[in-house]
Design a protein around this nucleic acid. Structure first.
Lengths: 252, 252
DNA sequence: CGTCGTATTGAATGGGTTCAAGTAGCGTGG
DNA sequence: CCACGCTACTTGAACCCATTCAATACGACG
């Protein structure tokens, strides 16, 4: 692909997916000067226990939050797509209580805390939208709890696929039912709280039923209605503008 | 008990547990005029799909957030103790994506959105503290994900008990290792994602090992170090002021 | 062309569920 | 004061979804 959107553009897309940007807000975002940085797959972006002095905006790639337990088990608590700014919370909470890492090679834009603090002071409407974003983050965590707490294995995986599809389409990264899907089965298993072996068997089942196919770090959602039904997916918790009606393939 | 703290007092306690209140903030809170209301156990406070026009502060009792799945299963995503204002997020997110209910008889203080909006405009320091609170809420959700996703049954239950103990003590509602514990085993099971039967067996095990005892809607934490060890509990994610060092019994 | 991470497969095991009864505790009304 | 009925709690036994272990296959990349 020749054209690659900038960090500011991705941020604007993301925010206008969950609310309205005033011209003033758009100007502030467009004027945003971020330090671009590349991170290899698996590398830490912000470590548990550290106190970042900047926030990162994901420009390309997929990041994830996780905690490692004392017995070595890992639980992934969220994935983050381009346009997300997953360590924004370090603005108000001093110490990271979990790690943030690149699940795949990532391009990041670093923004000093001071700039966001300025935004909050000077642009109350934008500040509210940022706050809204952190609250929607909370919504996604809650749904994630439901996923690992009360859904059987296959449904968990389908639900995660649905969420990723909708979120990626919302920032313009899905076309014709095809989404980038660079995660390993091990990542998936740590996200849904299952073993790798079991994830493998479920995925094969999805393939054999021709619901989702995986090729070349992409997922082809061959039968969205069926996937959605298997997941019992209702995307209301994503709080997209107009209930996500602007989405073309993955209506929620 | 003859003395019962007011809603404003509980709110102040809660907020000063996670940050510092300026005299100006304390004055605003003290001047807060809330409509007090009693809710019976099990009754809804805010229903999924609704759009509240006020936020509630819990004055007494225990509330919980949950979702009900199409097959009737319930997942509880958080419990809320006095001082919490669990539907604050309705200020920035129009539609409730989950239900909020009284897990036990509750006394609530209702505060119109307009008042909180005024606070946010006029008291930036307090606004930041409120934002911080919503972010800490997110932290608790993340830990909850870890709990249901990667911990074996007994550890899940111990972890939940630890969290409740620390949070209750933080608002002055625990004494001498004894906390109010009005939840049913069914509530517990929906919180940790296990069956009631299994929760029952785990609790009996805890009793027989003399770690936690349950009497008369109270839990007596007989062996905090052991409970904490069984849970592998680290309360850093609660982001209490001074790392929770002001707590007397349930050091985190 | 070898090597390391990732994916796949089978078989045995187990933590937790489900089903089905039975018991205890408690408020309510006769 | 006891009978009643409801809810919460308890117990045992059979079952199953998912894990674990162990081995093999694939595949991307230097």
């Amino acid at each position: 692909m020749l054209y690659q959107p900038s960090g500011a553009q991705m941020l604007a897309r993301k925010l206008s997916g969950i609310g309205n940007l005033l011209p003033e807000d758009e100007a502030a975002i467009a004027a945003l000067d971020m330090t671009v940085m590349n991170v290899a797959a698996g590398h830490l972006i912000a470590e548990e226990g550290s106190s970042p002095r900047h926030c990162c905006v994901i420009i390309a790639g997929l990041a994830c939050r996780y905690k490692i337990l004392v017995d070595g088990k890992r639980q992934i608590m969220s994935f983050h797509t381009p346009g997300d700014f997953p360590d924004f919370y370090s603005l108000h909470v001093d110490v990271m209580d979990h790690s943030l890492a690149a699940a795949t090679p990532c391009q990041l834009g670093l923004v000093p805390h001071s700039i966001f603090r300025q935004w909050v002071r000077r642009h109350p409407h934008l500040a509210n939208l940022l706050w809204r974003d952190t609250l929607i983050d909370g919504s996604m965590f809650r749904e994630w709890i439901v996923n690992v707490g009360r859904r059987p294995g296959p449904r968990r995986i389908c639900h995660l696929l649905c969420e990723l599809a909708v979120r990626l389409e919302n920032v313009g990264l899905a076309e014709a039912g095809r989404i980038p899907f660079p995660l390993t089965q091990s990542d998936l298993s740590d996200a849904v709280g299952l073993s790798v072996v079991h994830v493998n068997r479920v995925l094969q089942d999805l393939k054999s039923q021709n619901i989702v196919l995986f090729h070349n770090k992409e997922a082809v959602i061959a039968d969205w209605p069926k996937l959605r039904a298997m997941a019992q997916f209702d995307g209301a918790y994503l709080h997209l503008k107009d209930g996500g009606r602007q989405l073309r393939h993955f209506k929620i």
